[in-house]
C-alpha cells in the first residue's frame, strides 16, 4: 500500500509502522461522521538482543506490515508480541503471519492462552499453531526487551478503557503507548502527518469531548469520573512522558503537548462527572 509509512520515533529504538485507514463511517474506532484518513499504528520497540511489537495490525495490511517489519528488524531477532487489545482485530490481525515469518518467542495478553486469541485465519484451525510462549499481562508488569536490564518498560491496565486494554511506558523514549486513547488526531490526507510536534491544531475540550462521546466512550456522560481522573493523573505523574504513541492517528510529541492532552482529558472528565451531569441512558448513535 503506497501510503504505508514508517516513523523512526526514537533512533534505532522505536518505530511506528503506519498503515492508512480511510474514515468513511465504517471504522468502529472513529465517529460515524468522521471523514478523512487515519492510520493503524503498530510499534516496534527494539534492542540488539530482542524486540517487542505492540499490536500487529489489520489483516488487510498484512503484506505491508511484514514488509515494514523487514525494514526495521532482522528476522532472527527474538520478538515478543503485545496485542494491547486482545479481542480486537487491529491488535491481533497479523500475529500468526508475523509469527511464521519472524522469530516470535512470546505473546503477552490480558487473557490466558494468548495463542487461542490470535488464530483468525481462514485455513484449517486444526493445524499446529506456532511454538510461542503465552504470557499473562495483568496488573503492572515490568518488562525489558534487552533481557539484560538495559531497557526498562512497564505495561499496565489502561486507566480508562472500553474493552480489555493495556498501555505501556518506555523509559528510554519517554513514550506512553496509549492504544485506543488519544487517537483523535487524524488528517485530510492519507499521508498524514503522523507525527506532530507541539500543537496538533485540533485538541480542545470541545473537540476531544465530541470525539470520545461519539466513539467508544459514549458512557462517560454522567459517569463516576473521579476514579478515572485519579488513575489518569497517576499515569501522568508516575511516568515522565514526552510522547504519546496511540494505536490510531498521529503521534503527539513534546512535553507541553503531552501535558495538554492530559489536561484536556481531565477537564472533560471533570465536566462529564455525575456531580455536574445527570446520569442517563445513552442510546447508540446519539450524536453529541
Amino acid at each position: 500500500m503506497s501510503e504505508a509509512t514508517i516513523t523512526e520515533v526514537v533512533k534505532d529504538k522505536v518505530y511506528c509502522l503506519h498503515n492508512p485507514l480511510q474514515l468513511d463511517g465504517r471504522l468502529s474506532a472513529y465517529p460515524k461522521l468522521a471523514r478523512g484518513w487515519s492510520t493503524s499504528n503498530c510499534y516496534v520497540v527494539k534492542e540488539p538482543e530482542g524486540a517487542y511489537m505492540l499490536d500487529t495490525g489489520y489483516f488487510a495490511h498484512q503484506q505491508s506490515v511484514i514488509a515494514q517489519l523487514d525494514q526495521v528488524l532482522d528476522r532472527s531477532t527474538p520478538l515478543t508480541l503485545f496485542p494491547l487489545r486482545i479481542t480486537e482485530y487491529m491488535s491481533v490481525g497479523n500475529a500468526l503471519a508475523i509469527s511464521r515469518t519472524f522469530n516470535v518467542r512470546e505473546c503477552y495478553a490480558t487473557t490466558i492462552d494468548a495463542l487461542l486469541w490470535l488464530d483468525l485465519e481462514i485455513s484449517s484451525p486444526n493445524r499446529k499453531l506456532p511454538d510461542i510462549d503465552s504470557k499473562v499481562l495483568r496488573g503492572e508488569l515490568m518488562l525489558d526487551p534487552s533481557g539484560c536490564g538495559r531497557r526498562s518498560m512497564v505495561a499496565f491496565n489502561a486507566p480508562i478503557r472500553l474493552l480489555n486494554t493495556a498501555w505501556m511506558y518506555d523509559e528510554v523514549g519517554k513514550i506512553l503507548f496509549s492504544s485506543d486513547m488519544f487517537t483523535h488526531v487524524w488528517s485530510d490526507k492519507a499521508e498524514g502527518p503522523w507525527l506532530i510536534a507541539g500543537d496538533d491544531g485540533v485538541t480542545s475540550n470541545a473537540f476531544v469531548r465530541a470525539f470520545l462521546l461519539n466513539t467508544g466512550f459514549w458512557w462517560l456522560e454522567g459517569a463516576r469520573c473521579a476514579p478515572l481522573r485519579r488513575n489518569l493523573r497517576r499515569v501522568f505523574e508516575t511516568y515522565d512522558i514526552e510522547m504519546i504513541c496511540p494505536g490510531y492517528g498521529a503521534i503527539l510529541k513534546g512535553r507541553e503537548a503531552v501535558k495538554k492532552q492530559f489536561d484536556v482529558m481531565d477537564a472533560i472528565l471533570s465536566d462529564l462527572d455525575r456531580s455536574k451531569v445527570r446520569p442517563r441512558y445513552i442510546r447508540r448513535d446519539l450524536l453529541r
Binding site: S134, R138, G139, L141, N231
Partner: peptide, 19 residues
C-alpha cells in the same frame, strides 16, 4: 459492579494459569 475496578492497579497481578 459499581466501584469494583476503580483502582486500575488493583485489578490483579495474577499468576499464570491455564484453562
Amino acid at each position: 459492579g459499581a466501584g469494583k475496578f476503580d483502582d486500575m492497579v488493583k485489578a490483579a497481578p495474577e499468576v499464570e494459569a491455564r484453562t
